[in-house]
Amino acid sequence: MEAHALADAVNLRGVEYRWNTRNSFTLSIGTFQVPRGERLLLLGPSGSGKSTLLSLLTGIASAQAGSVEILGQPLNELHGSGRDRFRAEHFGIIFQMFNLLPYGAVIDNVLLPLNFAPARRARTVGAGGLESEARRLLTSLGLPGDIGRQKAATLSVGQQQRVAAARALIGSPEIIVADEPTSALDDNRQQDFLDLLFDQVDASGATLIMVSHDRRLAQHFTRVVEFADILTVSKN
């Protein structure tokens, strides 16, 4: 772990990925590094391969060539369930929308990732207990303190995104990946959401990688990268 602490959050070299279903296309990445603690915005239109990039980073998809190192750990050295465990322990992920299990209580949604991540769970218990940590995150993200018992489906879209952020942040994973998390929100709420998210990311010291097509968000980030600059999609 000491060596990992010095390593980049993300380090990709010579990665090639061919889609199984559309095998005439290959996604290639020369080098792509994200130092720890960075707040990175990846800019690009949809269909530019960003879903695939996020799948590669989080270990859901495996590159056919090259190396994907996350926090110093080469993902190709882990087998399937090892990658799943790694993802559970080290990533918090926020989607564009429909992040939550709609029938579940808010608190259960927030605590769910800890089921798959014992270390994160232990960290949460150490930080003050599961329920109180969840409540603390929910209130710091501007949600009412008693929202935990509500069914996720009864929440507004904006509230759901905040619950998703709380879920990503619980147990302080090293990397937060957010895939267009604000595109379902109106402008005012976008700003509120980002402010609260940044506060919490800073508080936990996590690395933030956000994907968006919205150039206006650039000002909030320490670095902005265009998809087109790091990866190419080529027809074989």
């Binding site: 989080t58 399937g80 799943d84 559970a88 992920i93 429909f98």
Partner: peptide, 16 residues
């Protein structure tokens, strides 16, 4: 499918 994708993103194994 959505539910399954969420569980996967949280680290649930396909076997789970």
């Amino acid at each position: 499918r959505r539910e399954i994708a969420i569980l996967r993103s949280l680290g649930a194994r396909p076997r789970t």
